[in-house]
Amino acid sequence: MVSVFSAKELRELGFTDAGIRDALECCLERVRRGRFVLRRSCSQVGHEPLRLVHEASATEHPRTYGDIRDDTERLKILIRSHADDLPRDAVFSHISAAVIHGLDPPFPATDVAEAIRRGFHRSKPTIRIRERKLPADDASAVADLPVTTILRTLLDIANDYSLETSVPIISAALRRGDASIEDLSSGIVRGRRGCRDAVQALKLADERHESPGESLCAVKFFRFGITGMQPQVDTFDEAGAWLARNDFRHERLPVIAEFHGVGKYYLSEKGPDRASIENHERHMRLLNAGFRVFNLVWADLFRAREFKRISAEIANLGG
């Protein structure tokens, strides 16, 4: 997490109102009323106490990516800012708990911190506390942050959030080995609001999804009535020669869907240019072998056109 200071802590470090205003123009940023985050360490002598506290805490400075990941980074700051003033016996839950456990949502799912506590409900601009039962076995801690266990976190998200949010997070947890479908299935409370969505989320989540984008593809296949698309399949030509490992391939028909995230190119050890060339060569091998290949990018996951085309192609081939 990051270094967040209360107004009281800043005064104990020797900052006056004028000193706080000066730091806000340099390395400090207001998170919410009475809470401030250290954006970066600076060389100003007057701000040295902030740097020393930050270094002693072994926390990180807030990260900036210039894309939708920045929303999750802002949420991390907000979570940290509420750590010291949670009501007694309340623990972080839902998306906040997922973030604390290192399971970031694929896109902004909420802009408030979330917690649960039995017999207590509160909804404010920066935090939502749900009134929920919390057995002792469902509570945990990550560093100094009280949080629901990973299993409880995944079940809460599956019940209370859309498939677009829950499936990527559950898939990531499965891939990390943090949970199993069997344990999650046994934790679903039949008849509870959201239980049908939770059951469907577990049907769509898969440890073979190698990225949030692939998990979102699986959700969109479901939304558009597309069945039979299997994740991470090795594809061979009629002679048995290996062609590629595909993100999705239909179980019976020569239909393939590939998700192209930024990482496929810019995280390649060979560099983006070589990765792009190799991807084109693979695409041509598949086309020459008779496969219909649909190349999806992030924006396609939020519009209908490509998924309607995939659905129509499967129908034309007799699927």
Rank of each mutant, 00 (worst) to 15 (best):
R130C: 04
E131N: 14
R132F: 10
K133N: 15
L134Y: 07
P135H: 11
D137R: 15
D138G: 09
A139T: 11
A139M: 09
A139V: 11
A139G: 04
A141E: 15
V142S: 06
V142L: 09
A143P: 08
A143H: 11
L145A: 08
P146L: 06
P146C: 05
V147C: 01
R152M: 07
T153L: 01
L154K: 03
L155W: 00
L155S: 06
D156G: 08
A158K: 01
A158D: 04
A158N: 05
N159Q: 15
Y161W: 10
Y161L: 07
S162R: 10
S162F: 05
S162W: 02
L163M: 04
T165W: 01
S166C: 10
S166M: 06
S166R: 02
V167R: 00
V167S: 07
P168Q: 11
I170S: 04
S171R: 04
A172N: 05
A172G: 05
L174A: 08
R175H: 12
A179N: 08
S180W: 07
S180Q: 12
I181A: 08
I181S: 06
E182C: 10
E182Q: 12
L184H: 04
S185Q: 11
S186I: 05
S186P: 05
R190T: 12
G191I: 02
G191W: 02
R193A: 13
R193S: 15
G194R: 03
R196C: 14
A198C: 06
A198I: 06
A198G: 04
A198M: 01
V199H: 15
Q200V: 11
Q200P: 08
L202K: 00
K203G: 08
K203V: 12
L204Y: 13
A205H: 00
A205Y: 00
